[in-house]
Nucleic acid binder design. Sequence first.
DNA 1: TCATGTTTTCAGAATTTACTGAAAGTATGA
DNA 2: TCATACTTTCAGTAAATTCTGAAAACATGA
Lengths: 175, 175
Amino acid sequence: MNHAGAAGLKDAKDRFVRTWGEMASQWGINKTMARVHALLMASDAALSTDEVMSALGISRGNANMNLRALVDWGLVRRVAVGGERKEYFQSEKDVWNMCCRIARERKKREIEPVIGALEECLREAGGGRDAAAFRRKLTDLLELVRLLDFVLGKLAQQEKNAVMPRVLTLMKAMG
Amino acid sequence: MNHAGAAGLKDAKDRFVRTWGEMASQWGINKTMARVHALLMASDAALSTDEVMSALGISRGNANMNLRALVDWGLVRRVAVGGERKEYFQSEKDVWNMCCRIARERKKREIEPVIGALEECLREAGGGRDAAAFRRKLTDLLELVRLLDFVLGKLAQQEKNAVMPRVLTLMKAMG
DNA sequence: TCATGTTTTCAGAATTTACTGAAAGTATGA
DNA sequence: TCATACTTTCAGTAAATTCTGAAAACATGA
């Protein structure tokens, strides 16, 4: 029973790693990066590059690149273990903080540049009568993208979360 | 001056098409699909497959595939023009409706399957003591993903939008 | 200073994803 | 029914992305 249970846990973690990787690739995130993230989330202890490599069957270069990317996103921390020279990696423990980091990075990397580009389109389109419909479309889109920017910004600064209850309240109000 | 203005409008639309394509590919959406969508958004009139092909310099097969995908997403409609046999395509005019359609489809195609898979992980992990931390992580993630599912669901059914003011109200309340 | 253990880089290879274009399919009306 | 105008499919190709692995760089302690 214990043995079967342990096998189940291993399988469950594998499934989780696979699921997270597939989800990520649908959202424009590198699949391996997400699998590394999932592996670290599912692991109690911090893992070394070599452990990540062998757990996922990937090369050193690949492991190194994706671990660094996760650190850049603020989703994973480098930690020192015992007297070891090797670096270990540990995922952010709090799922809500994780969500905030993702919001912050996507806002900065992806939403803000789009706002700039749309504003540039608007400028370039000029004030002519022939451009009126296009200007209208652009301003509508800008309103939408700025709202998303605003929401992500709020989410990003929410270090400890009171997000869930508030959103639920709003949603109930919206019917 | 008129001539310069017209050139500016054309350039602005080109920039818009490029911007939309780049943004989309960062969010896991086919770049060409987004460019077709942007082209239709920027165009007052409905366009035929041939017009899309020549405006973007893509093949018939590619144009056909991406136009169909846009129709499947509910972002573009097939329309009949005059007495013509040819099909024409027109983007959803209202940007907020567009947003609702995207919410509905991403919820259905991407969020719901992830919820199912996470629930399966939880089942597979079993009730053993060694799985406790992993179960905790899974339930936290599920809470988060279910919240996203809920929000997208609300957004999706919001046919005519009162979304903007409500969200702004919430955001102010959140500080 | 050097030997050792570790991380980083990057050119080329592998894989995945997207695209083409010609052929097959479909609808229309004469 | 056939010719015509148009749409769809899909096998093969091209492009983009991701990955590998060996070499270079770096850090540490003797």
